[in-house]
Nucleic acid binder design. Structure first.
Lengths: 349, 349
DNA sequence: GTGACAAGCTGTAACGTTTCAGTATATTGC
DNA sequence: GCAATATACTGAAACGTTACAGCTTGTCAC
């Protein structure tokens, strides 16, 4: 307290957003005390604490994110990393809303970090980690051996994956039980007399491709049905490709009499292909499809559907990441969503 | 340079992310010089500038966002404000990717700020502005008298709206020409002999409701067709509501023989309603619908569609906001996207 | 009465950046 | 030869926050 010390600013002049200094001035306390009072530190008197919090609420104090971030490194940001080309449309929308629901009452913001086909999927993750841009990350399209998960695990940054990995490493995830889905679909088709089944699977490389294929084949042998190979296309292929391939296979004499489809948009293509071949859904062939919004029954009432709730997935993923950030055990933040029944169309009255 | 001055840190110890100080140490320059050299300030020698930039690139220097934000108030964030319940699904996905494309080579991050039915739409905007959380904002569902736009205009925060307003205030926007869409749809229907047309419009209250209705009615009188009132539902209503209402109207003797629908999902409901009434698309009635992804033709090949590109909208909106932030005239950042032709189904070969 | 200790509060420094007000050296005008 | 000026650089301060190391004051043990 020797020289300068311009008596700081006069607090009353600029009416800009209130800071700790403003609060300190108003309460007559020190900035440090105010800071601690706001976070319920134990060494602050109970009355002081209440007084500070009251004033803070009154004048609408909001901590400056940049200040906190600079000082502590905490960003209060969750990043959702998405593939710009391959992501299912309703997935993007629903998962964002699911995440939003959960972080709504937290100080967290959601930033969307996209990457495109051409890029290494690790790129956006590296960016996030290197620049410390997020406290937690959500990734989709998990792979059995997922370099992104491995990378983040090494750097110790909290994340959650949509879909499981298979590297013997434990981390939070949320997944839909695609094994159960495929198996249930096969059983249902077998139950209505279908015996030669084709599977439109998720792209090879993603973990749930394996789950789906296993559920499919296991159930096939369980019910004694046979598989019609259909693995030259996946749900990542274009509508046109799937449609043409379906039409092709449906024109063969040993054509399938049942399909299991892992995505709604792809199902539209399958149906188109079936009809291109001059066959009729529900008579010549049945299709069980996953869907994430209730639209397939409008499309063709003969379709059989199983619902997957992406909004729920978003919420679960957000909860997992926040849990990990909050210090919970990664292993306790894993969840699996069971498919509901295969549902056939019921005429609304 | 009297007391303390602990010779700062030894720069070589912690290998954390490089900062200006790191660069200053490596180049032997002052922090200020480095800062200026990196932003091509004129008072820095050409060689020094190149040297600093070289080193910065080599060691992968990235400015610390919190530091910049704290000092300058610049967040390098664009916020996309979305309604959690009412937003069209493909809209969310496409617009995000559209925005992402544009901001990919900029320092900007995209944060998604959702709000729900129950909230005042102004809430999220107020939050963003009050906390200074974004340099620019994108909002959708513009209204003729839009309190959000007015609010942001008053505070001077750059934004762009998806859809136009009608308050005599100028601000950036991107819009699809829904007047032209509806008019074109009517003309097309009239061209194939349809005379009693119904419009499934956007929700009242949004600006493009008016545009659509005007285009519809203007073209009706132009071609001498008549309107079958259908304004008890809008595209914001549930599939079931639209479906029932459609079935109702289709069972009347003066039923429409043509529909114009402003959204793809709603079109599914209209078709379902038509079929509920025992009528056949393409024979008893034709439907022209907007769509944002190429799916309606798979649904019913008789459907007539007009494409609206939401990804483009996202890109345009992002460009507008960035332009405004960059100092361009708001009035020069407005764009209108013209609808393509009404397209009927063409059998892929 | 003194020492120890706890309770409650405070100032300073630091996070990384940019801005402001310089300083040192070279160049020019005359 | 010297002032004026331009060039190229620099340190200190500030943005808002939290961590650290204090500082008072009061209470209690003995």
């Amino acid at each position: 307290m020797d020289r300068h010390q311009t008596e700081k600013d006069d607090e009353t002049s600029a009416p800009g957003r209130p800071t700790l200094k403003t609060l300190a001035f108003m309460t007559g306390l020190g900035v440090t005390t105010v800071s601690r009072a706001l976070k319920d530190a134990p060494e602050i008197g109970a009355e002081t604490r209440r007084r500070v919090q009251l004033v803070a609420r009154q004048i609408g104090y909001r901590p400056n994110r940049a200040g906190v971030r600079l000082r502590t490194g905490k960003t209060n940001v969750i990043s959702l990393v998405l593939n710009t080309e391959r992501e299912i449309m309703s997935f993007v929308s629903d998962i964002i809303y699911g995440v939003s629901e959960v972080i709504a009452d937290t100080p967290y913001h959601l930033i969307v970090t996209p990457y495109s086909r051409s890029q290494d999927p690790l790129d956006p993750i590296r960016y996030l980690v290197e620049t410390g841009s997020a406290d937690g990350v959500i990734i989709s399209r998990a792979q059995p051996n997922d370099s992104r998960a491995r990378y983040m695990l090494e750097r110790g940054i909290p994340f959650a994956t949509h879909g499981r990995t298979d590297m013997g490493l434990v981390h939070p995830y949320h997944d839909f039980d695609n094994y159960a889905f495929a198996a249930e679909a096969v059983r249902h088709l077998a139950g209505i007399g279908r015996r030669r089944l084709a599977l439109l699977a998720p792209p090879v490389g993603l973990t749930y491709h394996g789950h789906t294929v296993n559920g499919f084949t296991d159930a096939l042998s369980e019910v004694g049905a046979s598989e019609v190979p259909f693995n030259t296309v996946s749900i990542d292929h274009s509508i046109e490709q799937i449609r043409m391939r379906t039409a092709q296979v449906m024109r063969r004499q040993d054509r399938p009499d049942g399909f299991v489809s892992s995505a709604a948009a792809a199902t539209l293509a399958i149906v188109a292909g079936i009809e291109d071949a001059g066959l009729k859904l529900g008579r010549d062939v049945d299709v069980v499809s996953k869907q994430s919004s209730e639209l397939l029954h409008l499309f063709r009432r003969e379709l059989l559907v199983v619902n997957e709730n992406f909004r729920l997935a978003g919420s679960e993923l957000a909860r997992s990441v926040l849990g990990w950030i909050g210090g919970a055990e990664p292993g306790s933040l894993q969840s699996l969503s069971l498919p509901g029944e295969v549902v056939a169309y019921h005429r609304p009255d």
